[in-house]
Amino acid sequence: MDVVIDNLPLYLQGFGVTLLLLAVGGVGALVIGVLIATMRIAPVASLRWFATVYTEIIRNTPLTLVFIFCAFVLPYLGADIPYLVSAFIALGVYTSPFVAEALRSGINGVPVGQAEAARSIGLGFGQSVSLVIFPQAFRMTIPPLINVFIALTKNTSVAGGFFVAELFATGRTLANANGSAVIPILLGVAFFYLLITVPLGLFAGRLEAKWAVAR
């Protein structure tokens, strides 16, 4: 326990980098994800196609491989970027199809009858989307989206294996330096991760229960 308290500044430093990875990766994933989701429901066939292929490819690639691409292969191909930036890219790109799928599943979860009803009372496209479908889809989208971000939080730990000094890397260094106190050190690292993931998970669960639409 003493080891954890003695090294608290190091922990907080690592935790800060983890939060940074989470924030930048999350925003990147949201931007690309919204783009891909829109492409997937676009009336233009070639865009739909591209979005589907993109989703399938990224979703079936291990994050570690994406990281290897961004950290080792990209610089080798001539892109001169620091490891932190390559971690941002890897996390953003890897998470984006999951964001897109969460958005899509929310929209798909609204029964067709709702749209038909909206159209039959004379609402236009904009009105039926903004007044009828989106409010319902929104409720079904937020809990999965929170889950995507929980996953992203955990995924930031992979960056620790690729020369980014975040929480996991800090834990590994400390564990190597203090061989006698490995358990408290790693539990300390786990505590910081749980600090983000558990409240988010409880929040998502609450929303899921509260927002379940009775039809």
């Binding site: 291990p62 994050l63 570690t64 890897y94 998470t95 999951f98 799928e101 969460a102 599943s105 929310g106 979860g109 079904m140 809990p143 999965p144 989206l145 929170i146 889950n147 995507v148 929980i150 996953a151 992203l152 955990k154 995924n155 730990s157 992979v158 998502a204 899921e208």
Partner: peptide, 13 residues
């Protein structure tokens, strides 16, 4: 449940 499971799948690390 399916939607959130799908989301959690990105846990995939």
């Amino acid at each position: 449940a399916e939607a959130s499971a799908a989301a959690r799948r990105s846990t995939s690390t």
